[in-house]
Design a protein around this nucleic acid. Structure first.
Length: 439
RNA sequence: GCCCUGGUGGUGUAGGGGCUAUCAUGCGGGCCUGUCGAGCCCGCGACUCGGGUUCAAAUCCCGGCCAGGGCGCCA
């Protein structure tokens, strides 16, 4: 094989081959999905990233050497096929390729660690071990094409709305932010940690004059949770806006969600079809449910929830039974929210924090932040944390910090909502959970 | 971290003190000119690891590891 044969010679993807191309000579490239050798005629199903094309080799129409070569092909080998498009009602999709030349670019080891045709379903663990093979299945790759489009849509939407994309450090010194467990790492002669959230950094950016910022980046949480909706490494879509309150950023959030769904519906028709999903684009504004009412609603379902408690899993499920689609929970008690959340002016026991829910899943939480230095110090102390370890953060509040608000949206959880995935691991190429660190 | 369940060919499973360990798919070989979960024939390939009970353990008991489900935790 010469060097030039390595470059992409493909003229068409499977999806582009229509009966109108009848008689044309084309080149397709991909993997051998299946071979059906009937003796005098061989069917080779060639799979590329969007679809499958049938290559049909009748012994009468295909010369002896080539016919023999085709009979000897193996599953999941990578091949290039030059051939003539043949319109045929007997072929899947009404078209097939009569081969003129077949070149094997690389063979696959057999047997395969999992069945790419899904005659035998593999478990998620087996699939993740051989993720590259798992992703050859269109129903698996569709999830990631949708995730890609969603993230693209989010970026376009935020840029259009004047947001500046920022990058904050993932190697951090402080473990004093409170809350979640952090992953400790060695930073030369010191201990450092992997960032749990860009929260403090994006707030510091509010004192920079950028006004509106967002970041799409990984967050790391060392919690030993082992559920279908938690990861130890996830992608967070974070946003912070100055001269805004919680109502303003809730509006941005609901518009962003609705817009992303609209774009996915528009640009991912094939993927949605593959996944058998009829995507509904929700109308804005989303319903707002006050925390006080949530307590009553949950209790009315027979699930115990005391005022002042965070939602248990049972409480979330109860809400999922009552509410459909996307909705906000507002008016959270100040006591169960972090120090940087602004208490409500009318009733300081209530906060300006909100969660965005989809059925029984929390996909985003945000708030109007505390922008007053002294109040922030007071709140840090109240939570049993040491203000000294927040020096660099607090300094930003001493030289003209505007009022601001923001939120974080879990990219994987949002992808679950769009694709209907029941396991968050389905929405990450290489998930990191309590047990899995490879591949 | 807690509770429950499980670990059998490459994959997905049946069985549950003594069997030649079930079936499907796969893989290898053969037949077959319209397959599309192709079909038919022949063959290949497995009891998670360590200890214990027993004449005998894949099966029962204990522990490890791993997995599935649920919960907790998740500023």
């Amino acid at each position: 094989m010469t060097q030039t044969e390595h470059k992409c010679m493909r003229t068409h993807y499977s999806r582009e081959i229509t009966p109108e191309l009848n008689g044309e000579e084309i080149i397709i490239q991909g993997w051998i999905h299946e071979i059906r050798d009937l003796g005098g005629i061989v069917f080779v199903l060639l799979r590329d990233r969007d679809g499958i094309t049938q290559v049909t080799a009748p012994s009468k129409k295909v010369e002896g050497e080539l016919f023999k070569q085709i009979q000897g092909l193996k599953k999941e080998s990578v091949i290039t096929v030059r051939g003539k498009v043949q319109e045929s009602p007997k072929a899947p999709g009404g078209v097939e390729i009569i081969p003129i030349l077949v070149r094997v670019l690389n063979k696959s080891k057999l047997p395969l660690p999992l069945d790419t045709t899904e005659k035998v379903r593999a478990e998620i663990d087996t699939r993740l071990d051989s993720r590259f093979l798992d992703l050859r299945k269109h129903n698996v790759s569709s999830i990631f094409k949708i995730k890609s489009r969603m993230l693209h849509s989010v970026r376009v939407f935020l840029e259009k709305n004047g947001y500046i994309e920022i990058n904050t450090p993932k190697l951090v010194a402080s473990a004093t932010e409170g809350g979640t467990e952090l992953f400790p790492i060695t930073y030369f002669e010191r201990e450092a940690f992997l960032g749990q959230s860009p929260q403090l950094y994006k707030q510091i950016m509010m004192a920079s004059g950028f006004d509106k910022v967002y970041e799409i980046a990984p967050i790391f949480r060392a919690e030993e949770h082992d559920t279908l909706r938690h990861l130890n490494e996830a992608i967070s879509i974070d946003l912070e806006a100055a001269f805004c309150n919680h109502e303003d950023v809730m509006q941005i959030l609901e518009q962003l969600v609705s817009n992303a769904l609209k774009d996915v519906k528009k640009y991912c028709q094939n993927e949605l079809e593959t996944l058998n999903i009829d995507l509904e684009v929700p109308k804005t504004p989303f319903e707002r449910v006050d925390y006080d009412d949530v307590v009553d609603l949950v209790n009315s379902k027979g699930v115990p929830l005391r005022h002042g408690e965070d939602l248990s899993r049972a409480a979330e499920k109860a809400m999922g039974e009552i509410k459909d689609g996307y909705y906000f929970i507002t008016g959270w008690p100040t006591d169960i929210k972090p120090f940087y959340v602004m208490p409500s002016e009318e009733d300081p026991a209530k906060s300006c924090a909100f969660d965005l829910m989809y059925h029984d899943l929390e996909i985003s939480s945000g708030a109007k932040r505390v922008h007053l230095h002294d109040l922030l110090v007071e709140k840090i102390q109240k939570q049993g944390l040491n203000p000294d370890s927040f020096n660099r953060y607090l300094a930003a509040f001493e030289y003209g910090m505007p009022p601001h608000a923001g939120w974080g949206l879990g990219a994987e959880r949002f992808t679950m909502c769009i694709t209907g995935a029941q396991n968050i691991r389905e929405t990450v190429l290489f998930p990191r959970d309590r047990r899995r660190l490879t591949p």
